[in-house]
């Protein structure tokens, strides 16, 4: 488990609709080094399911999915 408190990068996708949260996540994670952790915040109700599908397809580690006041906070580790 990685440090929820200290992701290497934070990506704010709140209020964006499909497919932007997933596409922006894919673009952002490319800029990290292997093993680094990205925190994505999103409000798209479909994001919790979509990010699971995407991370398993793209081969990145889904560390944690939490919901906080209507926003998802998702931690991903770059493979």
């Amino acid at each position: 488990m990685s440090h929820t408190s200290s992701p290497d990068r934070i990506l704010d996708c709140r209020h964006l609709s499909c497919p932007l949260p997933v596409v922006r996540t894919a673009q952002a994670i490319k800029e990290l080094d292997a093993g680094q952790v990205l925190l994505v915040m999103a409000t798209d109700p479909g994001f919790a399911l979509d990010i699971r599908a995407w991370s398993s397809r793209a081969g990145h580690d889904l560390v944690d999915v939490a919901e906080d006041g209507g926003a998802y906070h998702v931690l991903l580790r770059r493979s």
Partner: peptide, 8 residues
């Protein structure tokens, strides 16, 4: 298309 490309 964008989502598929983003998925690798």
């Amino acid at each position: 298309s964008t989502t598929a490309a983003a998925s690798g």
